[in-house]
C-alpha cells in the first residue's frame, strides 16, 4: 500500500520537524540565558574596575594638588598671594589678575600701565597684583610658572618697587605665546636689573623655589572667580574698558563714591 506508507512517512517527517524546531527553540533560549548571565557578570566586573579606578585617581590627584606645608611665601606679600604696590592708605585699590605669558595683558600694560603707575605714584591708587600661571606649555618650558616664580623672588629680595620694575620689564620683553619663553638666564638678568640680589636670585629662579606659591596664587585667582586675563577690578568693580581713559574714569568714579 504505497499511499499509506507515504502518509505515515510524511507524518513522521512532520513530527521530526516539530521536535527539531522545539530543540532549536530550547537551544536559543539557553544561549540567550547564558548571554544574559555573561553580560551581567561582565557588567558587574566592569563597574567594579571603573569604581576602583575612580577612587584611586581621585586620591592620587588630591595628593598631587595638595601644596606642601613648607611652601615658601615671598616677603612683602599680603593675603598669602597678593603683591601690593603703593600706599596701603590710598583711597582706591586696583586688583590686577595677570599672566606674564598673556598677550592681552601685555596689550593692557602697554595701553594703561603708565597711567596706573602715575595714579600709584600720586597716592591715589594701591595696585594689588594677583599672579596667575596658566599658560605653561611644553614648548615655553612652563614660562608662566617660571616668570611668576621669578617675580616672587624679586618681590622677596627687592620689595614692591623692585617687583613693579621687573613686572614692567617682563611685559616689555614678553616672548611670543607659541615661542619657547624667556630663559632662566634672561629672567635672572631682568631680576638683577630690577634690583634683586644676584646671588640669591639665581638659585631661587633656577630651582623654582616659589613653585608651590605660584600654584596657590593661580588657584586663589580661580577661587576669586577670575577666569580670563587680564582681569582688572577697581574698588571691587570689574573694569570693562581696559584702556588708559577707561582706567582713569573708573578710578575717578571710585574716588567720588
Amino acid at each position: 500500500m504505497p499511499a499509506d506508507s507515504t502518509a505515515v512517512r510524511s507524518k513522521r517527517a512532520a513530527t521530526r520537524r516539530r521536535l527539531e524546531e522545539k530543540r532549536a527553540a530550547e537551544a536559543a533560549a539557553r544561549a540567550r540565558a547564558q548571554r544574559q548571565r555573561r553580560n551581567l557578570f561582565g557588567g558587574l566586573a566592569a563597574a567594579v574596575v571603573v569604581l576602583v579606578a575612580l577612587i584611586v585617581v581621585v586620591l592620587v590627584q588630591t595628593h598631587r594638588t595638595t601644596p606642601s606645608a613648607a611652601a615658601a611665601t615671598p616677603a612683602h606679600t599680603v593675603d598669602g598671594t597678593v603683591i601690593p604696590v603703593g600706599s596701603a592708605s590710598a583711597p582706591v585699590t586696583v586688583d590686577l589678575y595677570e599672566d606674564f605669558q598673556c598677550p592681552n595683558c601685555k596689550a593692557f600694560e602697554a595701553a594703561a600701565g603708565s597711567t596706573l603707575a602715575k595714579l600709584v605714584a600720586a597716592g591715589t591708587v594701591q595696585a594689588r597684583y594677583h599672579g596667575m600661571a596658566f599658560l605653561d606649555t611644553a614648548a615655553n618650558h612652563a614660562y608662566s610658572t617660571r616668570a611668576l616664580n621669578a617675580a616672587a623672588v624679586v618681590v622677596d629680595t627687592a620689595g614692591p618697587e623692585g617687583f613693579q620694575k621687573f613686572h614692567d620689564l617682563l611685559y616689555a620683553h614678553q616672548p611670543a605665546e607659541t615661542g619657547s619663553g624667556l630663559t632662566d638666564e634672561q629672567l635672572m638678568k631682568y631680576a638683577v636689573q630690577a634690583g634683586a640680589n644676584a646671588g640669591v636670585a639665581a638659585a631661587d629662579i633656577e630651582q623654582r623655589t616659589y613653585a608651590d606659591w605660584v600654584a596657590k596664587s593661580t588657584d586663589q585667582a580661580s577661587k576669586d572667580g577670575v577666569t580670563s586675563t587680564p582681569t582688572v577690578v577697581v574698588d571691587g568693580k570689574k573694569l570693562t574698558d581696559l584702556s588708559a581713559s577707561g582706567l582713569t574714569a573708573a578710578v575717578t568714579a571710585a574716588q567720588s563714591r
Partner: peptide
C-alpha cells in the same frame, strides 16, 4: 590643578564638590 580650575570656572558646584568632580570626570 587646571582640571579643578576648569570645573570651578563654571560656578555651578559648591567648592567641596569641585575637586572630586574634576578628578573623577576624566576617569
Amino acid at each position: 590643578a587646571a582640571a579643578v580650575r576648569a570645573v570651578r570656572a563654571y560656578q555651578l558646584l559648591p567648592e567641596p564638590l569641585v575637586p572630586p568632580v574634576a578628578f573623577g570626570l576624566p576617569v
